[in-house]
Amino acid sequence: MEIIRSKKFISDRSWGAKDIASMNGISTRLHWTKEPYKWHVNDGEEVFVVLDGKVEMFFKENGSEQSSILEAGDIFFASIGTEHVAHPLGEARILVIEKEGSV
């Protein structure tokens, strides 16, 4: 049993994470960041939940780059093959649920 105060979580580097759970090959991690990630495609599906802060999520759909601003409480679902990159607007805390070992 553990209670995690996500708004207080910080890492010594952007995209540093706290592993919360690993269940049947699916990992749940809390990330802290203030810098963009990198363009990537996950090995499976990904659920990306903004817990604190704002994130501009860039993604490619039908070969066209698009973006959307995600605020606290918003969820981005990346289906298999969705190329995407997260750009925090200041500090952000993000819950990511994805296949273990995914990029």
Rank of each mutant, 00 (worst) to 15 (best):
V85W: 11
H31F: 14
S14W: 10
V103N: 11
V49L: 11
E61N: 10
W15A: 02
E61I: 01
Y37D: 04
I10Y: 02
D43C: 14
I10P: 05
V47T: 07
S64W: 11
E83G: 06
K18I: 03
E2M: 09
M23N: 00
V96S: 12
N42V: 12
V103T: 13
D52A: 04
N42P: 13
V49Q: 10
L89Q: 15
M1I: 00
R5M: 14
A78F: 00
V47I: 09
K99V: 11
I80Y: 15
I75V: 14
A72N: 07
I75R: 06
F77I: 04
I3A: 10
G16T: 09
S22L: 02
A21R: 11
K34H: 07
S27L: 07
T28Y: 03
K60C: 08
P88C: 07
A92I: 15
S22F: 10
K99C: 07
R29W: 06
W39H: 06
A86T: 05
H31M: 05
T33Y: 07
G25R: 01
F48G: 01
D74R: 07
M23A: 06
I94A: 12
K7N: 08
P88N: 00
S27V: 04
S68W: 07
M57Y: 07
V47C: 00
G44I: 02
Y37P: 00
I75M: 05
H31P: 01
F9H: 01
H87T: 06
G73M: 14
F48Y: 13
T82P: 01
G63E: 01
D74T: 05
K38Q: 15
D19V: 13
A17W: 04
K38V: 15
G25Y: 00
D19F: 10
S6P: 06
I80G: 02
F9D: 08
D43M: 06
K8F: 03
V41W: 08
S6Y: 04
I80M: 12
I97W: 09
G25I: 01
I20H: 06
V85P: 03
H31G: 03
R93M: 08
G73W: 01
H40K: 07
D12E: 07
S22V: 02
S102T: 06
A21H: 01
I69D: 05
I20C: 13
W15V: 02
E35Y: 08
S14H: 00
F48N: 03
K7M: 08
F58R: 14
Q66S: 14
E56M: 11
D19Q: 05
E45V: 03
I69Q: 11
D43R: 13
G73H: 10
S11F: 11
E91P: 11
L30Y: 09
H87W: 08
F76R: 14
H87G: 14
K34E: 12
F9N: 09
N42E: 15
E100M: 12
V55P: 13
R13G: 12
P36V: 01
D74W: 11
E91F: 02
F9T: 04
H84S: 06
G44H: 06
Q66K: 15
E56V: 15
G63Y: 02
A92P: 05
K34T: 10
K18V: 00
K18G: 04
D52K: 15
